[in-house]
């Protein structure tokens, strides 16, 4: 039995230490908002926060997480940055199929939490690891700026 702190709650589960967090979240704990995309940290669909920093859960072994706090898409709305990103995403109608958007939103929320007023270079640096096959990139960029502006206001 192992324990992880996820979205503010202690979650107990059974899995070997090498199991990537992604599969504990999805298949063991039923938190399916975090998505499987590539399994090699190349697409960003599985992004969660570990102590506020964006991490690809598809490679992160649960054995190494310890008591660091995990936030997933199901919990990100409780953070100010996360809520502002979710709102901007809907205001600008960013989403198409939506499959990558959990990861996009997690990456954007981490960016805004660390960099409240990101410029284009900041957005590139924070978001380039997240692939969107529907091609919503233009709106993602606009929505991040909108969320930043809304938080400043």
């Amino acid at each position: 039995m192992a324990t992880l702190k996820i979205n503010g709650e202690s979650k107990v589960f059974e899995a070997t230490e090498d199991t990537p967090l992604l599969w504990v979240l999805r298949d063991v704990l039923g938190l399916t908002g975090t998505k499987f995309g590539c399994g090699i940290a190349q697409c960003g669909a599985c992004t969660v926060h570990v102590d506020g920093k964006p991490v690809r859960s598809c490679l992160l072994p649960v054995g190494g997480i310890g008591d660091r706090a995990i936030t997933t898409i199901e919990g990100i709305g409780a953070t100010p940055a996360g809520a502002s990103v979710q709102k901007a995403w809907l205001d600008l109608e960013v989403i198409q199929c939506g499959y990558c958007q959990s990861g996009q939103i997690m990456a954007a929320a981490a960016l805004l939490a660390a960099t409240p007023h990101p410029d284009d270079a900041d957005i590139d640096a924070a978001m380039a690891g997240n692939i969107c096959r529907c091609g919503t990139y233009v709106r993602i960029r606009d929505a991040i700026k909108r969320a930043a502006a809304a938080r400043a206001a």
Binding site: T32, T72, I76, G77, I95, Y99
Partner: peptide, 27 residues
């Protein structure tokens, strides 16, 4: 018009085929 399918896509609630969970399910 704001899309009907997107609100549940910002909070992880939407259930794609890959997200289906059933009692006793194997993977």
């Amino acid at each position: 018009l704001k899309r009907f399918d997107t609100p549940d896509k910002v909070n992880g609630k939407v259930v794609y085929g890959i997200d289906v969970m059933l009692p006793g399910m194997k993977f």
